[in-house]
Simulated assay, not measured.
Amino acid sequence: METWIELVKQKMRERRLTQEQLAERIGRSQGAVNHWLSGRRRPDLDTMNDVLRELGEVNLEVVQILRVNEQRGRYGHQAAAAVPEWAITRPGFSYPVLEWAAAVDSKPSISAYSTGREYVSDYHAKGPAYWLQVEGESMSAPFGRSIPSGALVLVDPCAQAAPGDLVIVTAVVVQEAIFRELAIEGGRRYLRALNPNWPVMSWEDDWVIKGVVVRAMLDLQ
């Protein structure tokens, strides 16, 4: 909840929106918005996501996780117990949250990089997908696509990257992972940050795309 509150306050400052103006746009009272941003009350998930979309955060979603064994994905191994029909509202696949260093490894393992957390997504991965927690402000933008620091991104290492996709790229020589948007102009590839204050990076010969970011969400823990 604290992450959502801080992000909303940040985006309101950037857009110079008052609580009253935001309340009017989402069809709620200014008092309700004040209660949410002060932490006195918690809005429902639909409202939280309505606020994010109104503030331009169309790539982020707040989700409530219902953990059932039947919803485990490629990393899952436990036998499924009987699950009532009401508990499964849509297909779900559980993927681990790994440390950022996992993106550099050619075959990242859970045991080596696990943070002890996992989250469910409706995305059915083509490969052994995993979540990474975004660090830094290079992908945080005042308008349009924006992935703020602290958000979780789901990386599918077997998805085919196309221009405009958000990708994880590794530079083999310096052993670091870079999170950027893939761009192609005039037959040449580039990496672009969503933050307009960060420079465009020309593609280097030793760079390798390690995976495509297929989902993003706020980590409310």
Rank of each mutant, 00 (worst) to 15 (best):
P128I: 03
S111Q: 13
L220N: 12
R74H: 11
W4P: 02
K126D: 13
Q133C: 07
G211T: 02
V104H: 06
E181W: 02
E137I: 10
K11P: 00
R189H: 04
Q133V: 11
V8Q: 01
D105V: 07
G127W: 12
S111D: 14
R15M: 15
E6P: 02
R13G: 05
V214A: 00
V208K: 10
G76H: 07
D46C: 02
I178H: 01
L55Q: 01
L191Y: 03
E6T: 10
A151V: 06
P199Y: 01
A80T: 11
R53N: 13
T89E: 15
P84E: 01
V104W: 08
V120E: 14
P91Q: 03
R180W: 01
V172Y: 00
P157T: 09
R28I: 14
L194M: 06
V97T: 07
D205A: 14
R192Y: 03
V63I: 12
A81N: 07
I147P: 00
L7G: 00
G56F: 04
A103F: 05
L132A: 13
A171P: 01
Q221H: 04
L7D: 00
G164T: 10
L52Q: 02
V213Y: 05
R74Y: 10
R15T: 06
L98Y: 14
I26M: 04
R42T: 07
A193K: 02
E118Q: 15
D219W: 06
S106F: 05
D219Y: 09
G76K: 05
Q133H: 08
G150I: 05
E6Q: 10
G31F: 04
A82Y: 12
A161V: 05
R215C: 08
T18W: 09
G76Y: 05
L154V: 02
A112N: 14
G211K: 05
T47Y: 00
R180Q: 03
M217A: 15
E118Y: 08
D46Q: 13
E85G: 08
S106R: 12
K107N: 09
